[in-house]
């Protein structure tokens, strides 16, 4: 499996078509790392010329900005922009909707203008270009529900790219009672991931998980490492790990794809 950092690539005299922005969860969280690996496998299968930033990738600044720390956000953003502009990066793909949103919408005001793509959009593109082919069968007839990440769906109007992938898996797409524009949050956004929740009746992720369980789908697909973590905690709480799997679309496509 080939993963080069941008500096390694440049020292080989090459420049990548695209930067894969891994994000903190994809780099450090045990569950989310599997998503990163699956996506890297897809990129390799499709022979995409890509690089990662490695140690030069900082926090996008999303949780800092949403917690209200504009200073910290802008420091992070400008440092990242210096790195990205220094390498003359034009195109970024990321598997984290929070990084996606921040890089796409909030970096331009600070001098960072890139073509930012979410990995579900990119995988769709790879399939359309016949760079990878989905081998039907393994998901045929299985019920899959899709949890819309807030920062992919409502925030950026990307509702169809992930759903197209589920359809390509030959699976039956079932929707939760709140979906698309009205999808309920997993509870991680706005820096909630990093703190205990305020007093209430139930945790947000448990409420959302029970909506997913109601669909009786065997797989809950998502496109966000944080949603994945939250919903995984949810099914553990309901002791449903054997009946339901929380999977990223990159993992599902990787399982069902060949070159």
């Amino acid at each position: 499996m080939k993963v080069l950092t941008i500096s390694e690539m440049i020292s080989l005299g090459k420049s990548p078509e695209i930067i894969f922005w891994v994000g903190c969860a994809g780099s450090f969280d045990e569950r989310a790392k599997k998503i990163t690996k699956a996506f890297v496998e897809i990129l390799n299968k499709a022979q995409v010329s890509f690089a990662v930033l490695g140690n030069e990738e900082g926090c996008s600044g999303d949780p800092a900005k949403r917690a209200g720390n504009e200073f910290l956000f802008q420091m992070q953003a400008m440092t990242n922009i210096q790195v990205l502009n220094g390498y003359n990066i034009k195109k970024i793909v990321t598997s984290c909707p929070h990084c996606f949103n921040t890089l796409k919408n909030e970096y331009p005001d600070l001098g960072g203008n890139y073509d930012v793509i979410h990995h579900t959009q990119f995988i769709n593109y790879l399939i359309k270009e016949n760079k990878i082919t989905i081998v039907g069968g393994s998901f045929k007839g299985k019920k899959i529900t899709f949890h819309d990440p807030c920062y992919l769906g409502r925030a950026n109007n990307i509702f169809e790219a992930p759903r197209e992938l589920i359809k390509k898996l030959d699976a039956e797409l079932v929707e939760m009672k709140s979906c698309k524009e009205k999808a309920m949050c997993c509870g991680a956004g706005g820096a909630q991931m990093f703190k205990e929740s305020e007093p209430g009746n139930i945790d947000v992720n448990l409420e959302r998980t029970s909506q997913a369980i109601e669909t009786s789908a065997g797989i809950v697909a998502s496109g966000c490492p944080f949603c994945n973590i939250m919903l995984n905690d949810g099914i553990k709480h309901y002791e449903s790990e054997n009946e339901i799997k929380i999977m990223d679309l990159a993992e599902l496509v990787n399982q069902a794809s060949k070159i």
Binding site: V3, V22, S27, F28, T36, K37, V52, G54, N55, G58
Partner: peptide, 13 residues
Amino acid sequence: APWPFNQMDKLNW
């Protein structure tokens, strides 16, 4: 990163 991991370990995966 928002977690207490070393930035130098970011590519360990």
